[in-house]
């Protein structure tokens, strides 16, 4: 029983890791998306290259680059910090594409209508376009957040004491069989994601009805 309690004790670290990375991604994705949509090639091309590269290389490679690679510049990060940073930066790229998809789903007539009403570009964005884009993008954001929750398990490879790290520790201590410990670990993630995934599907239909296309 103690083994299982010990594994559950990693849950706050897992959740904190996921939330912090998501927060970095949610905010960092905004400038990246605007640069990707900009008219100027000088902004658009580097933004697109950054997004493509961040998504092309597996997250675990980014994690290792941040944790082991940066030591060559005499930057030594704590495993937790390195994990938040790596997962956060990768999230920026994925969320930027999700935000962009949200904006692209809005009918262009909304832009024209805002202009006709005399709204400034910034106000049109804030009161007309962004709220609708967010509604379209929200289910995809939730889906991505769940993918991120699963990716927090990568942090175990550099020694963050989250759920999977503790599960590995317990299998080595041998208080319970590796199979039951790992099944318990799998169940923790399943209990966290399956209800949220179902909710996201409901949300999708409800929110889509409130967007002009």
């Amino acid at each position: 029983m103690d083994a299982y309690r010990e594994i559950l004790g990693g849950l706050p670290t897992t959740l904190m890791l996921g939330l912090l990375a998501l927060a970095i991604g949610a905010i960092g994705a905004l400038p990246l998306m605007f640069a990707r949509r900009a008219r100027s090639l000088l902004l658009r091309v580097p933004a697109r290259a950054a997004i493509d590269l961040l998504r092309a290389v597996p997250p675990i490679v980014w994690l290792f680059l941040v944790f082991f690679g940066l030591t060559e510049f005499d930057v030594t990060l704590q495993p937790f910090t390195a994990s938040v940073l790596a997962l956060g930066v990768v999230s920026c790229a994925y969320l930027a594409e999700i935000y962009r998809g949200g904006f692209m789903a809005i009918d262009h007539g909304q832009v024209e209508a805002s202009q006709a009403l005399g709204l400034r570009r910034r106000d049109a964005l804030r009161f007309v376009l962004a709220p609708q884009a967010l509604r379209v993008a929200l289910p995809a954001i939730v889906t991505y957040a769940l993918a991120l929750l699963k990716d927090t398990s990568l942090a175990y490879t550099i020694g963050v004491r989250e759920v999977l790290f503790r599960a590995n520790e317990e299998t080595q201590l041998g208080a319970a069989s590796p199979l039951s410990i790992l099944l318990f670990t799998a169940a923790i993630y399943a209990v966290l994601s399956i209800p949220t995934a179902l909710l996201a599907r409901r949300l999708d239909t409800a929110l889509r009805s409130k967007v002009a296309r």
Binding site: S153, A186, A190
Partner: peptide, 23 residues
């Protein structure tokens, strides 16, 4: 399907490699 989507790939790999020898 739902388990395959909800459980991290790392956990599934470890289940197959370290878990299955139990049985």
């Amino acid at each position: 399907v739902e388990l395959g989507r909800a459980v991290p790939a790392l956990v599934l790999l470890q289940l197959a490699y370290y878990g299955l020898p139990t049985i």
